[in-house]
């Protein structure tokens, strides 16, 4: 049965399609089963899990997206920090963040426990949205609007690091997200924590 013992450097003679030893078959079977588990986890998480990168995705002209961001800023601006507008949109609204070399605009002020649709896009080149210190990361591409439903689960003062190389000033590109605990007073709409 097991004839022609040889190394991988030698040509196998005759027909090499022979049955494998049981131990080898068992390992292939276990490895296959594990691969199915690896695969099943992804659809399962879409169904039961809370973190998926699906979002609402559409093409957009970079200039049009930037104009929409400016409109959003005018609508909800409450303050400025270092010349950058701070924007406090009501819970449940669509919010816009534009990445450009080398800044994120605007600063977002959100409420803990409220859902928003965060639209990400870039004005010029690829950027990387990396929320510090939560460590949540998305690719931001000019010409594409990535609308992600987000629900902050903790209050605090967060940062947005750019983690896609966008030019020599890449490391200076930092934005800011503020998440507040209590529902803001006087906010119209569906405010409040669930």
């Amino acid at each position: 049965m097991h004839t022609e013992t040889h190394t991988g450097l030698e040509s196998p003679k005759g027909i090499w399609w022979k049955p494998a030893h049981k131990s080898e078959k068992v390992w292939v079977g276990i490895a296959f089963a594990w691969c199915m588990v690896l695969f099943a986890m992804m659809p399962l998480w879409h169904w039961k899990g809370g973190q998926n990168p699906s979002g609402i995705r559409r093409r957009v002209e970079p200039a049009a997206f930037f104009a929409r961001t400016q409109e959003f800023i005018q609508q909800y601006q409450v303050d400025t920090d270092r010349g950058m507008p701070i924007v406090a949109p009501p819970p449940g609204s669509d919010i816009y963040l534009t990445g450009m070399s080398f800044q994120w605009t605007p600063i977002l002020k959100l409420q803990k426990g409220a859902e928003y649709i965060l639209h990400l896009s870039a004005l010029d080149v690829n950027h990387g949205f990396s929320l510090y210190p939560i460590n949540v990361n998305f690719q931001v591409i000019p010409g594409y609007d990535y609308g992600l439903r987000i629900t902050p689960n903790a209050s605090g003062d967060f940062r947005i690091i750019c983690n896609e190389f966008c030019g020599i000033g890449h490391h200076t590109m930092v934005g800011r997200v503020i998440v507040e605990d209590a529902p803001a007073t006087g906010t119209p709409g569906t405010g409040g924590t669930p």
Binding site: Y132, R159, I161, N163, H171
Partner: peptide
């Protein structure tokens, strides 16, 4: 910890906000 790849300075000394 969220430290970015391809990044010159994670002390962000020249950035508008500290990290």
């Amino acid at each position: 910890f969220g430290v970015p790849r391809r990044h010159w300075d994670i002390t962000f000394s020249q950035a508008p906000f500290d990290v």
